[in-house]
């Protein structure tokens, strides 16, 4: 390994990435393509019209019913390595996705699912950050505050969002507030910790230099500390928004018919694997999109992190 880490250039990276996706799609295709011919035997009901009279065991009424007969049917069926509902063929899944996308009826269509989920998650994320960021900065500045709140944060941090569902339902019912609360609890401690670390990592010499140049204590926070901590805060937030999206199912498990989490959970109850895959794909795509948007935002807000060193001499 003469050069480490080695790199192959952006073009080639995209090329290999596309090949990776093609490979996964090919594997999916092979797994679900009905290569095999399966002969299954199962019964089917045969209606002979042979009527009998029986008495209803509960009400005692006389009923005229047909005697059931069954015949064994040999079904010659094509089957694949993996069959529905475990995994459906790519074309069927795409067809289901298209149907879900374009349904106009009273059942919500995919865009509505996406929109509702996005609104809930983003709103929860924004509320969470607007409390976590000031609190994190304050904790960074005041060690006594930090020490006081630290045990509470340690307790909250490992709790998965779904563990908040029972309490949230008891305290807030099953409306939108409950969902926002779940997203909030799922993302709050992560945002707090990232902000705290970003504040603690600020070079103390910057603070000293600023004081030395005449900055007063009130200006210190806004003109020095926040800009210095901002790059680390933003990169932490990028992680937190992905964390907030992992709360989508816990948030929508109760109290709604619309939303990607609700779509996935409902489809599980009716064995609709295609819809589950569609839901998962949407979540993934939305997070990737948000990532890209966030990166754009970062370039705007912290341009100095993205300029390369020109390293002029002396």
């Amino acid at each position: 390994m003469t050069a480490f880490p080695a790199s192959i250039g952006r073009r080639r990276e995209l090329g290999y990435g596309a090949a990776g996706i093609a490979l996964v799609t090919a594997v999916w295709f092979i797994l679900t393509y009905p290569f095999f011919v399966e002969v299954t035997e199962h019964r089917t009901y045969v209606s002979t019209g042979e009527m009998h009279t029986v008495r209803d065991p509960v009400t005692g009424e006389i009923l005229k019913i047909e005697r059931p007969y069954y015949s064994n049917v040999r079904e010659v069926r094509r089957s694949a390595l993996v069959n529905p509902p475990a995994l459906d063929t790519p074309e069927n899944t795409l067809r289901d996705a298209w149907e879900l996308l374009t349904t106009r009826g009273p059942n919500p269509n995919l865009l509505e699912h996406i929109a509702y989920s996005c609104l809930r998650i983003l709103l929860g994320f924004v509320i969470s950050c607007s409390i976590a960021i000031p609190l994190g900065v304050a904790m960074g500045l005041f060690p006594r505050l930090r020490a006081t709140i630290a045990p509470v944060v340690s307790f909250l941090r490992p709790l998965p969002s779904i563990s908040w569902v029972p309490l949230a339902m008891i305290w807030l019912g099953a409306g939108e507030l409950q969902k926002l609360a779940i997203v909030f609890m799922g993302s709050f401690s992560a945002a707090l910790i990232y902000t705290l670390e970003a504040t603690l990592k600020v070079d103390p010499n910057l603070i000293r230099a600023a004081l030395n140049l005449g900055v007063g204590p009130q200006d210190l926070l806004i003109r020095v500390l926040l800009p210095a901590a901002l790059p680390n805060i933003l990169s932490g937030l990028k992680v937190v928004i992905a964390i907030a999206w992992t709360c989508v199912i816990s948030a929508e498990i109760v109290g709604t018919q619309v939303g990607l989490g609700s779509l996935i959970w409902t489809s599980k109850e009716t064995s609709n694997t295609a819809a589950v895959l569609v839901g998962m794909t949407c979540i993934s795509s939305v997070v990737l999109l948000l990532d890209a948007l966030f990166e754009r935002l970062e370039r705007r807000l912290v341009p100095w992190m993205f300029v390369g060193a020109q390293k002029e001499d002396a």
Binding site: L206, V224, W304
Partner: peptide
């Protein structure tokens, strides 16, 4: 208190990156 009349030049520059 911190005295702006005594300007400091730091070893690690302490320039404001933003």
């Amino acid at each position: 208190k911190v005295e702006p009349r005594c300007g400091v030049v730091f070893q690690n520059y302490a320039l404001f990156p933003w």
